[in-house]
Every structure is written in C-alpha cells, then in structure tokens.
Design a protein around this nucleic acid. Structure first.
Lengths: 222, 222
DNA sequence: CAATTAATCAAACGAATGATTAAATATAGG
DNA sequence: CCTATATTTAATCATTCGTTTGATTAATTG
C-alpha cells in the first residue's frame, strides 16, 4: 500500500435513532408487508425499490434487512403471508365442491367471491404465476395440479359419466373453459370495464356469477 | 475549487471501433428491436437492463442511444413495430366478422389463430395492457372501445334481436365471456398445460377453437 | 441499578444502471 | 483523392440501487 488513507471518522450523528417507546402502533414488520403487497402487485418486483418500499411503509430502509434479510426476503414473506392461506382455501373449496349437488355453481361461487373479495390477488397472480418468469409458478402449479392431479377435470369427468354434462366435450378443455370464465373477468376488469363501457354496480358480482353459470351450462343459443 | 485535478487524458484507445464494412447482415436496429421484444415480454420493462439488451442483440450498449435515444425509446419503438399492425388487424377482423353468416365462429377463428401465431403477444398484452400501470392500456382501450364503442357487444345485441342468441343474457357480459374464452387459454397456457396435465399436440389450436365455439353456443349441459 | 438485548436511525458503501463521450474507421459525395 | 458523414467502439460519467455499518436509545434481564 502507498498512502493508506485512514478511514474518515464516522460523522457526529446527531440523530434521533434508538429503540422507540413501547407503543407499537402497527409493527414495522406489518407496515412493510402491507407496502410490499401493494407496491409489488402494482408495479412488479424489479420496478419497486427498497427505498420506495420503506417510504410507503413510513419506515427506515434498514428495517428491510433487519426483519427480512433483504428485498427478496420481504417479497417472499409477503407472498406466503397473503397467498398461502388463500390458495389453500381455494384448494379445499375445490375438494368440497366435489361433494355438492351443483358442483359447478359451488365452484364458481367460491372462486369468484374469493377473487372479488381480494382485489390484490388477480394482479399478483398475473405477475407471479401467469407471466413468464413468475416466481410463484412452480409452487402454484404444485398446489393445484400435483395435489390431486386435476381435481377439476376429474369433477367434470364424473359429471359426464353421470350424464349431467355432455359427453362429447374434452373434459380438460371444459375445465380450462370454466377457469377462463371464472378468472379472466377479474384479471381484465379495469380494461374490460372501459372497453365494454361497463358500469360496475353494487350487485355486479352476483350478476356475473349467475350469468357465468347460465352461460357455461346452457350456452348462448336459444 | 481547491485542487482542480486536470481530467485524466483519455487512454490510447487501441480499439477496433469505427464504421463497419458494408455487409449489414441484419441491421443493428433490427437486432435491438428483436432482443427488446423477446426480453421485455419475458421479464418486463424494469427488469431488463440496457446492457442485457445489447448483449442479447450482440451489439454495443451505446447503439441504444444512437438509434432510439434511450431505453424508453427502444421500448416504444418495439411496441409500435410489433403491436400496431396486429391490433389494427384485430380491429378490422372484428368489423368484418360482423358481416359473416357465423360471426362468432369467425371472431373466434380470427382471434385465436392470431394469438396462436404470435406467441409473444399474450405475455406482452398481459404486462402492458392488463397489468396495472401497463403503458399500453390507454392506447389499447382506445383502439377497441372508443373506435366503435363496443363492437362486440353490438354484434351480440344484433344476434339476440335476430333471434339467433338467447335474449335473456346481458350482452355486455356475454361479450366479456366470449373474450374470456378466446384469450385466457393463451395467456395462461404454460400454467394451464401443467395444471391440467395437457399434452399440447399438433392439432391443439383447431380443437380448442372448435371446442370453444361449441361450448359458447351450446353450453355443457346435455 | 448495571449490563445486555432489541429496535431504530442517518450515513455510507460497492455494485449496477442508464446514458454520454471521444476516438476510430468505413462509406459516400464532390 | 480528399473531405464530410455515418456507424461503431471502449471507456467513462452521474445516479440509483440493495445493503451494511455504527451510533443511539428503549426495553429487558439479572
């Protein structure tokens, strides 16, 4: 070494740091998780900086490292916090729909109500499952596919064998169509409402569910 | 100023820069546009660096500034290059479907074939139109909504009035359902094929179109 | 009460990012 | 042939990014 410059002494730090008085209004951890869910859903992982997360949560950036190790950790914690319970619920709803007298109506009710009640879910699914490179895709597929191997397809097959559904339809495609009708309206809602000039009213969800069941069962022909 | 260090002289630059011999195999501009379409569709705008774009295009990073001003410019050039012709085509296909004897079949054929033939389209639509904050949403909505004010809805209304479609369905919702069935399978294909354990075969597109028309018209009930 | 631990802060660090520059060189135009 | 222009290069710049640091203070522990 030639001129080993001695590290400049840390500046005075006339800060107001320190452990805060114990009236935790809403734990820093929770504020970060909430900000993460909102921002990541809206802009995507790469487009959200740790500084913007900290600002949205009204928290010091260092708190991300402190509670979640790093940005990726916060992201994953947010995903399990918000997704796991819901996906598990959807999984069991699918199982129980199998035992109902009108399984398709039951399926549509459960899924569409859940999506309607958790508006942050569709955009997150879009980004993290459907979009290429989504970080949840593998896990999501496991939850729905390997766990029971296409329950929905089996349900439709069973209904066909019982003579309650047309037998000339490919059950896999019929399942895909049902999911399309149940999910797409929520995913595309902001666009669809403008393209089709919809006014989303109070009873919109009810009417959408009823419409979807009718259409799926009987089609549009007179 | 205290010790105005004189700018260190630019180093020798024993480079092989300069205008290349005139055998433009595939213009730098085109390589950049191709790389942009592929990378932006796969990872999203923010997640793609200019360096990775340049590397994918096998081109010097400075070429982005040279041909497109900046990253944003390359992005927008790529969008108009790849989207505008297709969206215009879809718009006119919708108009002409109106005049066909089986307008719904015609609509499904046109849209599903176009989506199937341009596999980069669904993910890009997802990111830039459907996802919140998508940069194409406004323009896209204009193309489809303001230009004719819900042509598809009008088409369905007309078919209802002619007695060829059930009159008890909300035409707006019926239009939304048709789009759901036509678009979602392409958007969700990578996931759906695994969740439903599909093997996507040669004639998959044909079968999907036929299935969708049958289902939409007649439903799944026997 | 003294020592330790937990939680927070301002500041800084190194790496990566988008962008620009000056040099270099082939081509085009007279 | 000479000059002006177009296209490319390596190097550099300024900024932002994710993360770490060390100081600071409240709470907890013994």
């Amino acid at each position: 070494m030639t001129t080993a410059i001695p590290k400049p002494p840390r500046r005075p730090a006339i800060t107001k740091a320190g452990r805060p008085p114990a009236e935790r209004d809403l734990a820093v951890r929770q504020q970060l998780l909430a900000a993460a869910r909102s921002l990541f859903a809206k802009h995507g992982y790469a487009a959200v900086s740790t500084r913007s997360l900290a600002e949205a949560a009204q928290v010091n950036p260092a708190m991300i490292s402190y509670y979640f190790d790093n940005k990726q950790g916060l992201y994953e914690a947010m995903l399990s916090d918000t997704f796991q319970p819901l996906v598990e619920r959807l999984g069991s709803l699918l199982v129980s729909a199998t035992e109902q007298p009108r399984p398709i109506r039951t399926f549509l009710e459960a899924y569409m109500r859940t999506l309607g009640a958790n508006p942050w879910m569709p955009p997150l699914i879009l980004r993290e499952v459907v979009a290429e490179g989504g970080r949840l895709r593998g896990w999501f597929i496991q939850q729905f596919a390997s766990k029971g191997g296409g329950l929905l397809t089996q349900l439709i097959k069973r209904e066909q064998e019982a003579g309650r559904l047309r037998a000339d339809l490919d059950p896999t495609l019929a399942a895909l169509s049902l999911v399309s009708l149940a999910v797409f309206p929520f995913v595309a809602m902001p666009v669809a409402s403008e393209v089709f000039g919809m006014r989303v009213r109070e009873d919109y969800l009810e009417r959408l569910i009823a419409h979807t069941e009718r259409l799926y069962l009987q089609g549009v022909s007179p």
